[in-house]
């Protein structure tokens, strides 16, 4: 958790993105991580996957206008950060950060299967910004992956760990593996969300 320095500056409050995050700020290069840009030769290494699902509110209705952000390792399990720059296992055509706004609340994100970081099961960090909330964050795992039984985040979710598992739903004609993952913002089937501030 966060240990604040005694002389730390007071942080600006997070605030809701509201319903009108500009659609005009969409970047196609952040909506499909399998290539560096739709118009540029440069493919990410690894198994192509399509992650699709819905963002749902506490009534089970689609949460329209949500802004989703994704963060993951490359196929070799390396996060691309300043600390790993220069690591030979870095994939030059993969940075691991995705962003898309969903108008309806349904989403479809193209990427590659993340590799397992040391001590971890393969996962994708998902951040949701939307009207009515500031930011909620979770990590999504793959139902059929090695390492799920020992992953510290799945363990921390306890009995709710199955709500963090994406379900495999076959393969497209192009050979992409399809996974389905719904994010339930609130209600009986609420997705476990994570934070580093104590109450």
């Amino acid at each position: 958790m966060t240990t604040r320095q005694p002389n730390a500056l007071p942080a600006t409050n997070e605030d809701t993105s509201g319903p009108y995050f500009p659609i005009a700020f969409a970047d196609p290069a952040l909506e499909d991580l399998t290539c560096v840009h739709p118009g540029v030769v440069g493919e990410a290494s690894g198994t192509r996957i399509i992650l699709r699902g819905r963002v749902l509110d506490r009534h089970g209705d689609l949460a329209n206008g949500a802004l989703l952000e994704f963060w993951q390792t490359n196929a070799k399990g390396i996060y691309r950060t300043p600390a790993t720059e220069g690591d030979p296992a870095i994939d030059p055509w993969f940075h691991g950060y995705g962003r898309q706004r969903t108008a309806t609340g349904a989403y479809e994100f193209r990427t590659i299967m993340p590799g397992a970081a040391p001590g971890r099961a393969p996962n994708i960090t998902i951040t949701v910004f939307s009207d009515g909330i500031n930011r909620i964050v979770t990590q999504m795992f793959f139902a059929d992956a090695d390492g799920n039984d020992t992953d510290p985040v799945l363990k921390a979710a306890g009995a709710d760990a199955p709500r963090l598992l994406a379900r495999h739903d076959g393969r497209t004609a192009k050979g992409e593996e399809v996974y389905v993952f719904d994010i339930v913002m609130a209600g009986p089937d609420e997705t476990p969300f994570f934070d580093d501030l104590e109450s």
Binding site: M1, Y79, D131, G132, M185, G187
Partner: peptide, 28 residues
């Protein structure tokens, strides 16, 4: 109303020690 519909009701889970960095995207 939207806050009522979309705010998680359960306490947020504390990120386990040692995996904190994995929750921090680095925007290219």
């Amino acid at each position: 109303n939207t806050s009522d519909q979309r705010t998680p009701r359960q306490p947020l889970r504390l990120i386990p020690e040692g995996v904190r960095d994995s929750f921090v995207p680095v925007v290219p």
